[in-house]
Each structure stands twice: as C-alpha cells, then as structure tokens.
Amino acid sequence: MKDIRNFCIIAHIDHGKSTLADRLLDATQTVTEREQKEQLLDNMDLERERGITIKSHAIQMDYSLNGQKYRLNLIDTPGHVDFSYEVSRSISACEGALLVVDAAQGIQAQTISNLYLAIEHDLEIIPIMNKIDLPSANPEEVADQIIDLIGCKREDILSVSAKSGMGVPELLEAIVDRIPAPEGDAEAPLQAVIFDSVFNPFRGIEAIFRIKNGQIRKGEKVKFMATGKTYEADEIGVLRLNKEPRSFLGAGDVGYIISGIKEAKEVKVGDTITTVERPAEEAVSGFEDVKPMVFAGIYPVDTEEFEELRGALEKLRLNDASLTFEAETSAALGFGFRCGFLGMLHME
C-alpha cells in the first residue's frame, strides 16, 4: 500500500484537465505512441464532439522514482456545474487532488466549488498553474490568487504547460512526495465503495470500486450491502487503457468487478461490497442523494414503446446516478416519464 497514490484532477471548465491527464499518461509511458490521441480518457462520442468531459474516468499508471516503483491511480473529472455529482464521487475515492488553474483566466467559480468538495474530504491539494506558455498568461497575479484561496506558499505552486509537457516531470515527483498513501487494514473484512458503474451489453454491469479495507479474490462470493444480494466475482482487475484482469486486489486499490449482474437496479453508486464469508459490520458512509434542478417530461412517440423507453432510462441511470425519473400520464401524450436533471447541459 505504501506505493499507491490515488488522486483526481479538479478545475474550472476548459482549464486543461483532460490535456494534463494526457501528458501524465505520456510521461509514465502508460500509453504507446500508436494509441495516443488528444483527450484520450474522454471516450464517449458526445464528449469528443463537444470537447468537454462528462463522465469521470479512472486509469492506473506506473512510475519509478529513485529506484522505487509507484502505482498512481488518476481520476479525470468534469468541470461543468451540471456534472459536479461526478466530481464528488471521484473525490471520495482519492487521497489527493491536483487543483488546475488557468494562468490567463485565474480562479473561477467551478475552481472554488470543486476545491471545497476536496477540502471536505480532507484531500491533500497540489496547486498547479496551467497554460503558462500563453502570451496572455499572468502567472504572478494568479499565483497570488491561489495563495489567498488556499493559504499555501509560493514555492508550493507548480507551473505547467499541459500542451507542451513543460513541468510535468516535477509534477509527478510532487504527486509521490506530497500525496499520502491510502490508509486501510488489509487484514480486516472487505469494504469496497462503488463510485461508478458502466453497462456492458455482453457482460452485464461493471462496477468500479475503491477498496478501503480488506482484500478481494477472483471467484469469491461477494455481497452488495445496500441491496443485500450476493454474487460471485467472475472477474476483477485494474483499469489501464483497457481492463486488465487480476486474481487479487488489496486495500487502497481502485479496480472493477464483473459478476454477471443484469439489472440496473441492483448496483447503487455509493454502495459497499463485502465478502459473504467474513462480512463487514457496517457499510462505508455513502454519498448524499442529489437534488434535481431541471425537470422535463419525456414521452415515446408510439405508446407501445413505453417499456423500451423505461429500459433505456434505467441503463442511463446506471451510468449517471444523478438522473431521477418517475412514470406519469397525460391526457394528450399518453404514458411517459418525468425526468429530473442537474442543469440544462445535463438535460441535453
């Protein structure tokens, strides 16, 4: 566990989170030149088309410093306020956060709100000024803003250009030096928190979790505490660019589990996984329920497609726990759903 570092990248919209993640992946040689492309972690078509991050993405990197090997788990997060629920889930799986600030624009609204989320979870904050090679950059002014906001020293702030890769080696050293290793008891009963889930049409639901205490082995019987259902761990592993199966994961690791779950209702984000043989006494405290801000009625064009729409919404909710919906009827439109969203962009 001493060699693991879990951290996420938080910043305002378009301050360069996903590009910085690309440079970190290049510097640690996680990605071969052939697989390399811009904003590599943004794998949804919608994210590529708009150039924004919507889902959080986790990936593991290997890094060596002074002859010791480290495993870095990076989680890239979205910047828009509509997706702040994603950010809060990612933060709960980390011990540190890279706070990225654009050297031309300075500190903005989403910088501050994401920072407060990180401080609530007692994360170690590493302040970074990005885009310092821009002609309009104001590094001194922005550095003063950051010092006022977090109360750090001037020499703690790292200057980076995510586009050219300048300053990235120093950043990797700072991650290893400043972010604490995860705490947890490898001998205790298993407690793993699910912070994301993905629907795979061939293999059922993949739950992505972070182990707080204990360890999990392939083929072991596991229990999801919120629903009380038990499954066999058909496959567990770590998230590289592609999934890499492992036979064993221990405390502090971030990984995925595939256990042939078909129904979206059976996996709740924020749920705790434990083993059937030695169950944990209590679940890890989860996330607060989210309050929707924007409501929209969604109706099928043909009333016979009502069940298909319900299935599609359930699969969507699996991937995005902040979506709420309930059935409703209308005299003019027939049967449909009333859906709640966190903002106008989220609704699109």
Rank of each mutant, 00 (worst) to 15 (best):
T53E: 00
I128R: 02
S113F: 04
D271S: 04
L41M: 09
V193N: 06
G67A: 06
E326Q: 10
S285D: 09
D148W: 01
G311P: 00
L25N: 08
T53F: 07
Q29L: 13
Y299A: 08
T30G: 14
R338W: 07
V81N: 02
G106N: 08
R48T: 01
M225R: 07
D320Q: 11
D82V: 11
K291N: 06
R154P: 06
F337Q: 10
V294A: 00
E304A: 15
A296W: 15
C94K: 02
I54G: 04
V269S: 13
R178T: 09
L172G: 07
E155S: 14
D253E: 14
G311D: 10
G237Q: 12
E263T: 13
V269T: 15
T53W: 05
P279T: 10
D234Y: 11
L65I: 03
S285M: 09
A97G: 05
P135L: 13
N213C: 11
A264E: 13
V101Q: 08
E183F: 08
V193D: 03
D42L: 08
D82L: 08
Q36H: 13
T111G: 06
V81S: 12
A226Y: 14
A93C: 05
S136F: 10
D14G: 12
I194Y: 09
V238F: 11
L342A: 00
A186L: 13
V238L: 11
E38I: 04
H346P: 07
P279N: 06
E288P: 13
E124R: 07
V168T: 08
L149T: 14
M44N: 08
R203H: 15
N213A: 12
N130V: 01
N138E: 15
V160F: 05
L98H: 13
K37G: 15
N73T: 04
E187G: 14
M344W: 08
A296I: 12
N43G: 10
D22W: 15
E328T: 15
K17R: 11
G167T: 00
L249H: 05
G204N: 10
T19R: 08
T32V: 12
D185E: 12
A181F: 10
D271E: 06
L41K: 04
L309T: 02
V290D: 04
E170F: 04
F248A: 04
E155P: 12
L149F: 04
F335L: 14
I147Q: 11
Q191G: 00
F295D: 09
I258F: 02
F325H: 01
L24Y: 05
R5S: 08
K218C: 10
L171N: 01
H80T: 00
P139A: 11
V81T: 09
D320Y: 13
Q191V: 01
S56M: 03
F199G: 03
G237W: 05
M347K: 13
S90D: 03
F83A: 00
I261C: 01
